[in-house]
């Protein structure tokens, strides 16, 4: 197998993402697939850093850096303004981190979804406030270390894909960097649709998770293969399609490669395994109908 992607050269070299950064990798395929007729909206996050130190930009498209609360609202406003000026063909994409999506930007996001605003919202989910030194977010998984959960987060990760699907928006999908073809296809699919489109992309944060510089894509695959982060898409909040699911690999294979989990006991790993199994049992029933 060999990948073949038609990229428009929007994303530029010389950006300031860490070596091996999977967010930068995802951004490459998001903006290069959406193409030049796109406006991006970015709240404070690593994505804001990557989009370039002013006055330089790493994206050859207009990028609006908004507040942490307002990505979805800003994107919706820009899209409505473009439409009013007869530029409906321009894509508007909000690219926010999990902090700006699950937590601080959630109200704006939920409202935009409820209004079915004509925007693409992509959450680059690295499971914490990694840009400010790895604090926990509501996306941080159960038992993961962050600087604000030094003995492991006692609560489970919020399931944003299910929340967004529950808004009955036209398109909800999960994706990750280890499956670039799947990511590109989903961005392309979102680009071709109208209304609120939401994609959550799992982004292994090399520094925040304690992963080797070269291993981001591999870790992201393990997240899928262990069943921790199945890749699927949902149309109109109802029609579920599984793209890549668990392959019987124990969660330990995923957890043991990350420093944020190195404090885990065998019992805790077993508990996580049971939770993942149970979540998968619940999710898989949705693919049947």
């Amino acid at each position: 197998m060999a990948y073949q992607f038609a990229e428009e050269k929007v994303f530029c070299s010389g950006h300031h993402a860490c070596p091996g950064c999977n967010a930068a990798l995802a951004i490459r395929y998001i903006v290069n697939t959406l193409g030049k007729d796109t406006v991006a909206v970015v709240p404070p996050s690593c994505i804001a850093i990557i989009s370039g130190p002013q006055p330089l930009s790493s994206m050859r498209i207009p990028v609006y850096q908004t507040t942490l609360e307002a990505s979805a609202a800003s994107a919706a406003g820009i899209k409505r303004a473009l439409k009013a000026r007869g530029k409906d063909h321009v894509n508007v994409v909000a690219m926010a981190g999990d902090g700006g999506t699950y937590d601080i930007g959630f109200q704006a996001l939920s409202s935009a979804a409820e209004r079915n605003e004509d925007i693409i919202y992509i959450c680059l989910d690295n499971e914490g406030y990694m840009n400010t030194g790895a604090q926990k977010s509501s996306s941080t998984p159960f038992m993961a270390y962050t600087t604000s959960t030094p003995s492991g987060k006692p609560t489970v990760k919020k399931n944003i894909a299910e929340i967004m699907a529950a808004h009955r928006i036209p398109y909800t999908a999960t994706a990750t960097t280890g499956y670039l073809d799947d990511l590109v296809r989903k961005v392309q699919r979102a680009k071709e649709m109208k209304g609120m489109r939401f994609i959550v992309v799992l982004i292994p944060c090399l520094d925040g998770w304690g992963v080797a510089d070269h291993e981001g894509a591999k870790i992201s695959r393990l997240a899928v293969q262990t069943g921790i982060f199945p890749l699927y898409e949902v149309e109109d909040g109802r029609k579920y399609t599984l793209n890549h699911g668990p392959q019987g690999i124990p969660v330990e294979a995923y957890l043991r490669r990350q420093k944020r989990y190195r404090h885990l006991t065998g019992e805790q790993i077993d508990e996580i395994q049971r939770m993942v199994d149970s979540d998968w049992e619940y999710l898989r029933t949705k693919f049947d109908s």
């Binding site: 530029c12 010389g14 300031h16 070596p19 370039g52 002013q54 330089l56 930009s57 790493s58 050859r60």
Partner: peptide, 19 residues
């Protein structure tokens, strides 16, 4: 106040020096 805030692309930056 500049009419265009972005004056260039990050391609001017040499991140290869980090290597």
């Amino acid at each position: 106040i500049p009419p265009v805030w972005t004056t260039g692309w990050t391609e001017e930056l040499s991140t290869g020096t980090w290597r």
